[in-house]
C-alpha cells in the first residue's frame, strides 16, 4: 500500500514542490485547514490581462506528503487554464493525475489544495462553491 502511495512522482512533487511561495496582491486567494491532521494550504492566483486566464499560481502551507504533493501537481495543472473552467474542474481530474490508491482519510489530504483553489476562484468570481464540496465539510475552507 505505502509503496504504491509514495511512488516516484509523488515524492518528486513533495520534495520539490512547484510554485511554492506567495503572490503579493493576488487576484484570488484562500486558505484551508484539515483539522484531522493539521494540514494547512494557502493558494494565491493571479489572472492575465483578460481577467480570466490563470497566469500564475503559488501555494504555501505545511502538511503530509500527499496534501503537499497533490497541491504542487494542481499548480502544474492550473497554469494557463481559464478560471471559470478550473473552478468547475472535477475532483477525478486531479485524482487521475495523482494516480495512486487513496484511503478515504487520505483522500481528504489529496483534495485539500483543490478545495482551497476552488474557494479562491469562486470567491474572486462571486459564484457559489459547487455542491459536491459539501461532502468535504470536515475541511475548513476559508
Amino acid at each position: 500500500m505505502s509503496d504504491q502511495m509514495y511512488r516516484e512522482v509523488i515524492l518528486d512533487h513533495y520534495k520539490n514542490p512547484r510554485g511554492h511561495g506567495v503572490i503579493e496582491d493576488a487576484d484570488a486567494e484562500a486558505e484551508g485547514f484539515n483539522p484531522l491532521c493539521g494540514d494547512e494550504v494557502s493558494i494565491y492566483v493571479s489572472f492575465a490581462e483578460d481577467g480570466e486566464t490563470i497566469e500564475d499560481v503559488k501555494f504555501s502551507g505545511r502538511g503530509c506528503a500527499i496534501s503537499q504533493a497533490a497541491t504542487s501537481m494542481l499548480v502544474d495543472m492550473a497554469k494557463g487554464r481559464k478560471a471559470t473552467d478550473l473552478a468547475q474542474m472535477p475532483k477525478d481530474e486531479l485524482l487521475e493525475e495523482i494516480g495512486i490508491p487513496l484511503t478515504p482519510i487520505r483522500l481528504k489530504c489529496a483534495l485539500l489544495g483543490l478545495g482551497v483553489l476552488k474557494v479562491a476562484l469562486h470567491r474572486a468570481k462571486g459564484t457559489p462553491l459547487p455542491q459536491e464540496w459539501a461532502g468535504l465539510d470536515e475541511l475548513e475552507l476559508k
Binding site: M1, S2, D3, Y6, C37, C64, A65, I66
Partner: peptide, 20 residues
Amino acid sequence: IHPHDVAQILDGEGVAIRAG
C-alpha cells in the same frame, strides 16, 4: 515528516500506530 506519512508507511510494514 508528517505523522500521517509516518503511520502510512509503517502500515505497509504491518505496524499500526496512531497519528493525529
